[in-house]
Amino acid sequence: MGYNFKETMNKPERFAPGHRMCAGCGATITARNVLRGLHEGDKAVISCATGCLNVSSFMYPYVAWEDSYIHSAFENASSTMSGVEGAYKALKKKGKLKEDYKFITFGGDGGTYDIGIQSLSGAMERGTNMTYVCYDNGAYMNTGTQRSSATPMYADTTTTPVGPKCKGKAQYRKDLAAILAAHDIPYVAQTTLLQGFKDMHVKAEKAIYTDGPAFLNVMSPCPTGWKYKADEIMEICKLGVETNYWPLFEVIDGKWILNYEPKKRLPIEEFLRTQGRFKHLFKPENEHLIEEFQKEVDRRWDDLLFKCSR
């Protein structure tokens, strides 16, 4: 079955309005659109790591999810879902449940790259039949923009504040998609918010309907943490892709597949310039930092091309 945008948009909404995320939040856009990968009528259980999405989507007694939902703690969204999936298998085996369910877990980069990586790695290695979606906004936004291992190099965060002795975060970001691919799970993909959302819808559907663990890494900008005007989100995501900062790829059964190659790769500064967190890089004395950044982007892109050429 081919992809049909209007059909996808016509599905019932599974993430209700009235949640308390910030105006213009990228994480909610991600959550909504990933859920559009579910086939109409199919049942799902959603879980969430502690973070913006969780606290804003279920504030007693208001729950935004239209499917059954569980939140337990910060670092254990994956293991919690392992238990739910285990219950599903047990109840099926014992003939107590006839309906089919899909299992989808959301976590920010804090709950995924950092504190939750152990339980995520465990659940993936065990072959838990679930889709884990990281809404990567590159810092601990729920607590006020502290750096994470997903934060890009030189970003100004509240724990790497720019000053005479600090040019922002010193390290480049962890390549989580590659770490997940190294688990040899059947499906890993990276996507972001792009016009029409076909890339996300298609990857979400593939992930959700993969037999076994699947992982989606979704760059989901945060207007407050990245310091941009809320309505610029789609442009920023596009630049992330066009500069090769956030490449679109899939790893299916170990095979790396590049989904998009910019016709003319844009310089990284076009992406950096859109966000206040990189403002200091545009001072004359910091030009070399942008060069450094560009080198790292290029190195990673070459590495990705190599992986995809095999």
Binding site: M9, G18, M21, A23, G24, I29, R32, D231
Partner: peptide, 27 residues
């Protein structure tokens, strides 16, 4: 799809009126 507040409902393949009870005005 780009509305973070699910405030642009769709019915019968058509966009309906904006849900101003929930739109946060992000633009």
């Amino acid at each position: 799809p780009c509305c973070p507040d699910s405030a642009i409902p769709v019915k019968d393949y058509k966009r309906c009126a904006i849900d101003y009870d929930h739109c946060k005005g992000c633009g």
